[in-house]
Nucleic acid binder design. Structure first.
Length: 313
RNA sequence: ACUAACAGAUCUUGA
């Protein structure tokens, strides 16, 4: 009961409330088990409070319950997510010393972490260690590597990894396609991206809002805002609704073309749909008016942002 | 219902 509750609170980023429940349950004679601790640790990691996660971890080491593989994986992921890769590697050693065998998840998290900070060499070292331990890379591992190579501009390597994935059998999933489509878009290879979109549909996969938003962004950033709107029409036809990210990309695209007025109209449409604008959307539109020299209006949007309860960062 | 991969802005990225 308590675990379900804590998990629910953590997934909703209510870590403070989760902590209250966590502290209370002990007093009510129900001691937290490993899963409870893991959930709390993950909750802290997801909100970038790794130090607090480590406090709980140390308590587990001292008074139990002893950490298991999931505890270690969760913490390693937490360190990876905030770029502390050396701490993540230290935890890998520590878990081995304590007789806890790393698994595919452990290595995949580290590979992803190294890819995210552009350390492809280290990512492939981790990959090799994983293989030496006769663990096999799965679609998540490969997708992380593909993304890493795209972000480092090594499109050819990324594509050869994709081929390898296909050769090893198994269909690619939507998320893998998304990474490649977004990679192409970021490299301004829009026709490749569109070809891949068609291919995934042919293979019976349903593109989702991330797929379409990547394309919309690619088009906007290549001076084809009008085509971006056609993609949005298409996604709506496919019953895939544009979300905050999608609109935000369009707002930015319009503003970059000097069409801040049109962007503002779009914002009206977002509000009418009940979407809540965030600081990213506001920054785009404010910047749009700044670029037009209309500082008065930029400031009034800033006010509107604050009164809408959105905190400027 | 304990852990891993995907989309948006601004500023910065120093010999």
């Amino acid at each position: 009961t308590y675990n379900a509750l804590i998990n629910g609170l953590c997934s909703n980023r209510k870590i403070e409330s989760a902590l209250k429940v966590f502290d209370q349950m002990g007093r009510k004679g129900c001691l937290p088990n490993v899963k409870t601790y893991n959930e709390m640790i993950n909750g802290f990691c997801m909100t970038a409070k790794i130090e607090k996660a480590m406090v709980l971890f140390n308590r587990m080491l001292k008074v139990g319950p002893p950490p298991n593989r999931i505890t270690y994986n969760t913490l390693i992921n937490g360190y990876c997510k905030c770029g502390y890769l050396s701490n993540a590697m230290r935890l890998l050693d520590f878990m081995k010393e304590n007789g806890c065998e790393p698994d595919e998840w452990t290595y995949t998290e580290l590979i992803c972490g190294f890819c995210k900070v552009g350390k492809l060499e280290l990512a492939s070292k981790v990959f090799d260690e994983m293989v030496e331990r006769s663990l096999s890379a799965n679609e998540v591992t490969y997708t992380a590597l593909i993304e890493g190579h795209f972000k480092s501009g090594e499109v050819d390597v990324a594509l050869s990894l994709l081929e390898r994935m296909e050769e090893m059998g198994g269909e690619l999933n939507v998320q893998t396609y998304n990474v490649v489509i977004n990679g192409f878009c970021k490299e301004n290879m829009l026709s490749e991206a569109e070809k891949l979109l068609e291919k995934m549909i042919e293979r019976g996969l349903l593109p989702n809002v991330v797929t379409y938003t990547s394309l919309v962004d690619g088009l906007c950033k290549n001076g084809a805002v009008h085509l971006a709107f056609r993609v949005v029409d298409e996604m709506v036809k496919q019953d895939c609704m544009p979300n905050l990210h999608t609109y935000s990309v369009l707002v930015y695209g319009l503003c970059q073309e000097g069409k801040a007025e049109e962007a503002e109209a779009l914002i009206g449409e977002m509000e009418a749909k009940g979407l809540v604008l965030d600081e990213v959307t506001y920054t785009s539109i404010i910047d749009g008016f700044v670029m037009l020299g209309r500082l008065d209006h930029a400031f009034s949007l800033l006010k509107r942002m604050v009164s809408a309860g959105c905190k400027p960062n």
